[in-house]
């Protein structure tokens, strides 16, 4: 029986070494992290710091070469088979031959939900990402930001407690990104999911997260974990507040410290 504040994701001394033609690459080295239920955790760091690799380990898409990691008290592979999480990739990856509604019901079909249940869930998550009325449209008829929202709806459709997002807004412009960040926070507040969010952007990480994990490359490791003192309610102009700027500074310092090791 898991208590309310026992960690949903727990990594201990996690190591992952890729064997490449140029020799071994230490993607992750001695990563220790605990994520509690309902947290919004951002992973930030330069390319090659292992933030995406860590997320993929949580999802059971990569096998660690050392250490332990558990998701909902299971191994990542068991959690994947139990469909414990929804995963949002950098590209929306909607099927061009399916309408938005049928794209969102894709995981539901695979998981064997009934037709009626599929219909209910599709309209509910479309509402959640503010895409009601676009159910019968094809992906090419939507803007990039709308496509990414549809892909978030697809990840939400089967009600997994955990949402893993790998630079979901990385390919979008600043204004669309701000809007989607705001929407994501509202969605997080309504659904109370545990979110793991990979990003390159310091303001995005600070604005969204309750916990910011700063990582650095060669070998990929955690250099700082910052618990955000910002309130849960966050209007966009919170980014001009002294607290926000202070955390952003600390993140930047952490990133710089990681680089100083080179």
């Amino acid at each position: 029986m898991s208590e309310a504040n026992s960690p949903v994701i727990r990594a201990h001394a996690l190591d992952l070494t890729f064997q490449t033609a140029d020799g071994p690459v230490h993607a992750l080295k001695d990563v220790n992290l605990e994520i509690a239920k309902g947290e919004f955790v951002s992973f930030i760091g330069p390319s090659g710091c292992g933030k995406t690799t860590f997320l993929r380990c949580v999802a059971g898409l990569e096998q660690p070469t050392g250490g332990t990691i558990s998701v909902n008290g299971m191994t990542p592979d068991e959690a994947r088979q139990a469909r414990a999480y929804g995963y949002v990739f950098q590209a929306a990856g909607l099927y061009p031959w399916r309408t938005i509604g049928r794209n969102i019901s894709l995981p539901l079909e695979i998981m064997g939900y009934s037709k009626a249940d599929q219909k209910d869930r599709v309209s509910r998550v479309l509402d959640l990402v503010e895409l009601s009325g676009f159910e019968r449209k094809y992906p090419w008829q939507l803007s990039g930001g709308m496509q990414q929202r549809a892909s978030i709806a697809r990840a939400l459709a089967f009600d997994a407690d955990i949402l893993l997002m790998d630079e979901p807004f990385g390919a979008l412009d600043e204004i669309v990104r701000d809007h989607l960040n705001e929407q994501l926070l509202a969605l997080w507040a309504r659904t109370e999911k545990t979110i793991g969010f990979v990003t390159h952007s310091i303001p995005e990480a600070v604005y969204l997260s309750t916990k910011i994990v700063v990582m650095s490359p060669r070998p990929g490791r955690i250099t700082d974990v910052i618990d955000s003192p910002l309130p849960k309610e966050r209007p966009l102009d919170i980014r001009d507040s002294p607290e926000f700027i202070e955390i952003a500074h600390r993140v930047r310092d952490g990133l710089r410290a990681g680089h100083a090791d080179d």
Binding site: A59, R83, L106
Partner: peptide
């Protein structure tokens, strides 16, 4: 990425074939 997405749904080969590979190949 498309293959990974279906892995996160724990889709089997059959589902991957009929829902992704076949329509993509048409």
């Amino acid at each position: 990425m498309q293959m990974d997405l279906l892995r996160t749904y724990n889709a089997n080969r059959n589902q991957t074939f009929w829902r992704l590979r076949l329509p993509a190949s048409l």
